[in-house]
């Protein structure tokens, strides 16, 4: 008898294992295809989020003007105080 000779039962088991292996390969390919499909969706959504964040960053880039506006309003207040002093002096002279 040949040393690698198999009885029919062993042959059948090996053949079954090969068929199961092919099925497993096909299942792995299908699952990985689904994984790639979902990863592509994630990629598209991340690109959309990045574009939205770029627009938001452009919109909020003008907030550096807020401290300048605050300084301007402070200058208006200082000028108003000068007007108050001036009008107080003039009003005193007019009434006298």
């Amino acid at each position: 008898m040949h040393p690698l000779a198999m009885n029919p039962t062993e042959h059948t088991v090996w053949l079954t294992a090969i068929i199961i292996g092919f099925v497993v390969v096909l299942a792995v390919a299908a699952l990985l295809s689904v994984l790639i499909y979902y990863v592509k969706i994630i990629d598209r959504r991340v690109v959309a989020v990045r574009e939205t964040l770029k627009a938001a960053e452009t919109n909020t880039s003008s907030t550096v003007l807020i401290p300048q506006v605050a300084d301007g309003v402070e200058a208006v207040l200082a000028e108003g105080l000068q007007h108050h002093l001036f009008l107080g002096r003039v009003l005193g002279k007019v009434k006298s």
Partner: peptide, 11 residues
């Protein structure tokens, strides 16, 4: 970008 927006919003 989020960190930039946060730095802008802090003002």
């Amino acid at each position: 970008l989020v960190w930039k927006i946060v730095s802008h919003a802090e003002l």
